[in-house]
Amino acid sequence: MKKKISELIASKYFSFFVTVILFAILYGVGIGMYKGFMKPQVFLNLFIDNAALIIVTIGITFTLLIGGIDLSVGAVLALTCMVLAWLLANTGISVFAAIALVLLMGTAFGAIQGYLIAKFDLQPFIITLAGMLFCRGMTAVISRETINITNPTFVAMADFRLSVGAGFVSMGVIIAIIALIVAAVVLGFTRFGRNIYALGGSESSASLMGLPVFKTKVSVYTISGFCSALGGIAYALMMLTGYNLHGMGMEMDAIASSVIGGTLLTGGVGFIPGALFGVLIQGVILTFISFQGTLSAWWTKIVVGALLCVFIIMQAFITEHKSKLTAKSSLEENS
């Protein structure tokens, strides 16, 4: 039994299990305290409210997996909303052309950041910080006021509801779910996905094993840029505006979600379902606060901060536990 527990802790899915169990407990407590939690729609709302964050978290998880980071995601999201709103308000192009254009813009932006990071071996923290400031600035340059999206096709898309059992989900959720599935398959079952993990495990080893390090790095940041733009569309569907302060600090929420879901900031460990539950936990806490009624929404930040701290410490313990196990097995080998 003791051995089983020890092996479970050493398993790479341990922090994921902890996250899922924690989510289940939180939700269970919610049901106990507030009747409202019982409604299926409350559960589905977690997805509806956080669709954009889920998508952005997917992208940032890719960069964290190679031991990098992408601070520009929130700003790219805001720029996407703004450009989309501006295009729909001031030009005659079709909604789909506008969406394709902003997706292309986000992807290209990610690719440029990735190229700079990989080519010149620069700090991703600094490059994407620069990217963040650039995009945030550009958003304000386009318009300092809110631009409302009134395009009928887009509004119809925003109003779209797909019924699921006793509830419904929005277009953003559908996009998020598709993105989740694609990302999980790419990471788990393609050579490209596994190269990402190898790169995160040890860049020099990956290079000596003959893996395409440069290409993988650029692709990862490109994906993150694409996800930010896709998240921007989901965000626009929810808000129906372009605004300079959209997605402020979202990069940090995304990093927090990913880490709570079991991603190691040092790279090489983490997976997509974990990132999803990381987002959902934040959602549950927010739901609690809104049901409670008197607490400020900022309490979410406090709880998430505490959780993050706990999870990082837990990860340190897991790492230590693992190296002890390895030391033990090498001693056995020698005796």
Partner: peptide, 10 residues
Amino acid sequence: NLCPNLTVAE
């Protein structure tokens, strides 16, 4: 020169 975070098979 291998990746410690991947499985042996991988």
